[in-house]
Simulated assay, not measured.
Amino acid sequence: MSAEAEKMLEQTARVESVIWIPGAISDPDVIPESFEDFVGNLPGNPDAPLYRQLPQIASFADEGDYPDVLDVAGHLVGTTGFLIRAATPIMNPLGDGGAFHFSWGCYRTEWLYAKSESDILPVVTAWVESERRAERSSAA
């Protein structure tokens, strides 16, 4: 097993989708279904990690507004890198002892951005670590 795969297992993370931005938006007449899925599932929270990473699309954070795929693509023109849909199980506390239980039967996903292939693992693991800190602090 590669070191990258081992790190993902340690972090209880997986990558569900990877979209190479320049390839996805290069021809407005042929936008891939994966990019349409991305646009249809943009985070409604303006504080989402994706909008901190790609502020040029933060205006699409309105939960009540479903943006046009070509509008989002237009805001990403000139952007290199990858859109990543990362997943991690939701950790549930087991009593007061600081132990947690998790299962891939109950997990959350988040769209993230990585500037290069080598940035995918650090971006995903940083997001998972942030989720774990939030789960531990809410359980305290």
Rank of each mutant, 00 (worst) to 15 (best):
A48W: 05
L121C: 11
T12R: 14
T88W: 06
W111P: 00
V123Q: 06
G23W: 09
P122L: 04
M91N: 04
Y66H: 13
C106E: 09
E110W: 03
I21L: 05
F100V: 00
D27H: 14
I31D: 12
V72I: 06
L121N: 06
L42H: 09
L70I: 08
G40N: 15
V39R: 07
V69A: 10
V72N: 03
D62Q: 11
S138H: 09
I31M: 15
D47Q: 13
D29H: 15
F60D: 05
E131F: 05
R85Q: 12
F100S: 00
D96I: 12
Q53I: 01
F100I: 01
Q53E: 12
V72G: 03
E10T: 14
P46C: 05
D27G: 09
V30H: 15
T88G: 07
D65P: 00
N92P: 01
W127V: 00
F82Q: 11
A114V: 00
D96T: 14
T125Y: 04
Q11P: 00
A5C: 09
Y51K: 02
V124F: 00
P93Y: 02
A61K: 08
A114C: 00
L121D: 07
G74T: 09
V15W: 08
I25C: 10
E33I: 12
A73Y: 08
E63G: 12
S103M: 05
A139S: 11
A140F: 05
V77S: 12
I84E: 13
E131K: 09
D96Q: 14
D65I: 11
P49M: 08
I21R: 05
S59W: 04
W20I: 11
S137D: 03
A3N: 14
F38S: 10
R108F: 07
A126R: 09
V30I: 14
T80G: 15
A48M: 07
V18I: 13
N92R: 13
G98P: 07
L70H: 07
P46S: 09
F35Q: 12
M8Q: 06
L70R: 13
P28A: 12
N45M: 08
D37E: 15
Y107A: 14
S138W: 04
A24R: 04
G98N: 07
E10K: 15
A5T: 14
E33K: 15
S17K: 15
Q53C: 02
F102H: 09
G74R: 11
L112F: 02
A126L: 04
E110G: 03
A139G: 08
D68W: 06
I31Y: 11
G40L: 13
A134P: 00
R52V: 02
S130N: 04
D68M: 07
P89W: 00
A139C: 05
S138N: 09
G105I: 03
S103W: 07
Y51P: 02
Q11G: 11
P28M: 13
A99N: 13
A48C: 06
P46M: 05
L121W: 02
V30R: 15
V30C: 15
E16P: 00
L121P: 01
W20R: 12
A114Y: 01
A3T: 14
Y66D: 11
E6H: 15
A114F: 01
F38Q: 08
P67D: 10
L42I: 11
T12C: 07
L121M: 06
D62C: 05
I31E: 12
G40Y: 13
M1C: 09
